[in-house]
């Protein structure tokens, strides 16, 4: 019952969550009005970017930060629930929402693509898996940031940090492509940041079977690593009152 209550809570905690799901799904249908040629538009890649990378930031906004800022956490943290359970079940709640969302979106895209013939759905099942994996990684990162950032600023911070991390990469590639510093920076981003590049390669089928399995394992481990940091922060977090 405890797990069920916490998982359901991730969906019911704000009215906006239902609206976000509907808005995200609603964005797919109008795109089919654009006469994409089959080779120019890959629906799997779009699903990966739209629902895999952007949706988790919208759904996880303020997932702990809002509770902490509003004082709700002062009521929750005195309940006999281990703080790691709060974190884990909330992340699981997000992940399950993503699974349902992606399956719904996938069905919608498949039907519309079959009806219109616009764009392509090559390796669609793999893209669906990659989208769920990247969703979970972003969601874990954003949820962990939410433990230390008040209100809904966690998602914005993740976006800004991503821009701040990728902009220097372009500069380095432009001016110091062969330097060792650039190579180290790329390795750090590739393996410590959300594994966008590796999962895109998986979706496009540009890796071997062991390489693909490695990417899946890496993505899951990274999600677990982000979650572990969030749990550590939550355990060390004080839930203070504004006044005394």
């Amino acid at each position: 019952m405890k797990a069920h209550a916490l998982i359901i809570e991730t969906f019911r905690r704000r009215q906006a969550i239902l609206i976000i799901h509907l808005a995200w799904l609603g964005a797919y249908a109008p795109l089919f009005l654009i006469p994409f040629p089959p080779k120019a538009w890959q629906w799997g890649g779009f699903l990966f970017a739209w629902s895999g990378c952007l949706l988790p930031l919208a759904l996880s906004a303020g997932i702990f930060g809002h509770d902490i800022a509003s004082g709700r956490m002062r009521l929750l943290a005195t309940e006999p629930v281990r703080l790691w359970e709060f974190y884990l079940y909330r992340l699981l709640g997000l992940s399950l929402q993503a699974a349902v969302h992606l399956l719904t979106a996938g069905t919608l895209i498949l039907v519309l693509q079959r009806l219109t013939g616009r764009g392509n759905i090559d390796r669609f099942a793999v893209w669906l898996l990659a989208s769920w994996l990247i969703f979970s990684a972003w969601a874990a990162l954003s949820t962990s940031v939410s433990v230390v950032v008040s209100r809904e600023h966690n998602s914005m911070l993740v976006v800004l940090a991503t821009i701040a991390a990728t902009f220097p990469l372009y500069m380095l590639l432009l001016f110091f492509e062969d330097s060792i510093g650039t190579k180290i920076y790329i390795v750090v981003l590739r393996y410590a940041g959300p594994p966008v590049e590796l999962l895109v390669r998986l979706g496009r089928g540009r890796c071997s079977l062991p390489g693909g399995l490695g990417s899946i394992a890496h993505s899951l481990l990274l999600t677990a690593f982000y979650a572990a940091i969030g749990i550590l922060l939550l355990n060390r977090r004080e839930f203070t009152a504004i006044k005394d």
Binding site: E9, R13, Q15, G71
Partner: peptide
Amino acid sequence: PESPAFLAR
């Protein structure tokens, strides 16, 4: 707590 907060929905 002094100002209990709940999920409004």
